[in-house]
Computed example of a mutant assay.
Amino acid sequence: MHTRAEVYSPLQNTAVWLAAWLYHVESSDDTLDALADLGGTHSFNGASMAHLLYDVRSAADLESPGPAIRLILWGPGQAPRLRAGSPSMAALTQAGALVVRGVGANHVLVPEYLGPEVRWRWFEEQEPLPEPEWLSPGEADQVLSRATDQAAVLIEALGGTRKELPNPRLAVGTLADFYDTPGLPAGVTPRAAKLFARADRVAATIETVTDQLDDHSFDPQLFALWRHVRSARMAGVADAVVDYQREWAR
């Protein structure tokens, strides 16, 4: 199992860029460029990503309380917060989904990453979706930090990794830089940015141990972190989107 699929999704930054565009913080051109960096050529029903952006703006409820865009990530020990048996659940891939809040309905956008292109599918949900965790950035940061410390203690107690990299800090830093590419749009809250950075760092550390070192003796300790990394990303997106709404409403 490749670790990256469990701890990283380009949807984190995609969600924040879409919110920045919806609330007129970023231009259409800059948003489309960022989305291209996050997956290549995007298409929706055979049309370009610009067509999807237009439909998202038409459907989105930007004024009701709460995030107009939510990130859905899932994996071992963490079910996706979509309706069981729904078409959107059936279409879901490991990459996750975005939920755009509409008036009287939720719109679930499910991407499929196919090498240099991304194909989007759109599902309308009239029934309420399962409630998300609704962790605050501070709560998500504390949970992730505590789980990371616990995993480190366990690994140290078991004698450390069996293999070594010539420069493990450089390996972790290089991977953390990958997770952060292509960066975030303007106006992202410092809380969300800090949470994304911590999630990137933890994800890079997990990948360094399991994939770069090819040491799977600590999989139970490290895999337990996956859920907290995903939860941190979802909480950070929610905080960034709500803050965009707050600034837009002023």
Rank of each mutant, 00 (worst) to 15 (best):
P76Q: 05
L22I: 08
L92M: 06
E164C: 09
L213H: 10
V16Q: 04
S27P: 13
A5L: 12
E112P: 04
R246N: 07
Y23A: 02
L53S: 01
L154D: 10
S136Q: 06
V7H: 03
W21L: 14
N45P: 00
A59T: 13
R227T: 15
E156G: 12
A224G: 11
R101Y: 04
A238Q: 06
T161M: 12
I69K: 00
K163S: 14
T210S: 11
R119S: 08
E124Y: 00
P65C: 05
Q150S: 13
W120H: 02
L98V: 00
G102N: 06
D239H: 08
G96C: 03
E139S: 08
D211A: 03
Q142M: 07
L52S: 04
F178K: 09
R233V: 00
V16Y: 01
L158Y: 10
M49Y: 12
H2M: 10
P185T: 11
A47W: 06
H42L: 06
A50E: 13
A176R: 13
P182R: 07
D239W: 02
E247N: 11
R121C: 07
F223V: 14
D200Q: 12
A105K: 08
R4F: 08
P137D: 00
L222S: 08
P130A: 00
L170G: 14
A105Q: 10
G46E: 00
T41V: 12
L92F: 05
L73H: 09
